[in-house]
Nucleic acid binder design. Structure first.
Length: 143
DNA sequence: GCCAACGTTGGC
DNA sequence: GCCAACGTTGGC
């Protein structure tokens, strides 16, 4: 199963809000970048991902999973170019993993978060997934 | 608040 | 179809 990373500015949509949305989850709306959209189109229900706070926080704070396949973005005003998936919160990171920690870790030097700073929905490799989970204090990370 | 990176737009 | 201008993102 593939892994992903979702960026959000906590001022507009925070991890607390994501958790409050419960098991039904929410549409990951507002992505207007083709690469990020294509990543969402490739997602399967059950794919896990990291939830990252950009701008304020700069850390991975939790784990989410895809709970609905990509579908038209309801905020795109009927523009068929833009799709999104639904995601729901799965668990907190016991220890949030900061961007600083990630940049300092040689294993993660190729991570999209480092190399494609501005991409808002990114793929995460299995190795990166395992390493970030380990750093975050998850001994038995979800797959 | 600044500015680098980078995606998008639009004139040619 | 190229590329300069522009706008946005996001770390610092």
């Amino acid at each position: 199963m593939a892994h992903w990373l979702y960026k959000s500015e906590p001022a507009s949509w925070s991890w607390e809000q994501q958790k409050a949305a419960g098991d039904k989850g929410t549409e990951w709306t507002g992505v207007r970048n083709y690469l990020a959209r294509n990543n969402m189109r490739a997602m399967q229900v059950g794919d896990k991902g990291f939830f990252y706070h950009s701008n304020d926080g700069l850390e991975i704070v939790g784990i989410v999973e895809v709970c609905a396949l990509s579908h038209p973005d309801s905020t795109a005003k009927g523009d068929p170019k833009w799709d999104c998936v639904d995601i729901r919160a799965v668990m907190d990171m016991p220890k949030p993993v900061t961007l600083k920690d990630i940049k300092a870790n040689e294993t993660l030097s190729k991570m999209s978060l480092v190399t494609s700073m501005r991409l808002s929905v990114q793929p995460v490799t299995d190795d990166e997934w395992a390493e970030v989970c380990r750093m975050g204090g998850l001994d038995n990370p979800p797959r």
